[in-house]
Amino acid sequence: MLLEVKNLKTHFYQEGLPVKAVDGISFGVGAGEVLGIVGESGSGKSTVGLSLLRLIDLPGKIVEGAINFEGIDLMQLPEKAMRNIRGAKISMIFQNPFTSLNPVFTVGDQIAETLRFHQGLSRRRSRDKTIEMLKMVHIKNPESRINSYPHQFSGGMQQRVMIAMALACNPKLLIADEPTTALDVTVQWEIIKLLRELKDNLDVSIILITHDFSVVAELCDKVAVMHNGKIVEDGNLNQVVQRPKDPYTQKLISTVPRIE
């Protein structure tokens, strides 16, 4: 197992009372595997993703659990070592690519910066690698597009840029939090197609966070269904989709118009 999470609990404290956003979940992701985490809004999916990178800020706190990644418990790492994991070994992309990109830097600068500070690449080498990454996510004319600002890209292109940045340092794990939700329907499927292609070509595991079972069906090997901070059902894609045991899972699947 590349990643093994045991009994993870992340709570947010409001007026003393804990909101148990993640309430004791365990799961694993193998090398090259795609795990879908599905659930309604507020079920705690994003909190899982952020917890894995230890990016939970006050009023939230990871109160319990172990996050074993490549044999190391991330919970025991000092913050500085954790920073070397983020973006280099585990990357994360978010729902809205436009707000995730820094508006005042060109996309080329943003990708190159990641390469420079994680891998210490020179200006020229990081530029070459940036162009290579943009090619990989199928952005046309990358040599000139590196000089464009985020607002000069469409939503789908922005998400491609985010994916390129996330994968620039060859991470072992990509956490994609609702990567298609903010996009137009046709663009959504292009991004899913891209993720599938990257999964096949690269040595990267993916945790795909979504509320949409049809996205899961397109991409995932395994599924975990979350409800109120707990995993109510998990297993292989076919098993969960075709013979859901939990009533909550059945409800989620029945709301999806059609799964091919």
Partner: peptide
């Protein structure tokens, strides 16, 4: 803003 969270997610330090 989200770009700050994204910056944390690529491992940037607070000062950076």
């Amino acid at each position: 803003r989200q770009y700050v969270e994204a910056a944390h997610a690529i491992g940037a330090s607070n000062l950076r």
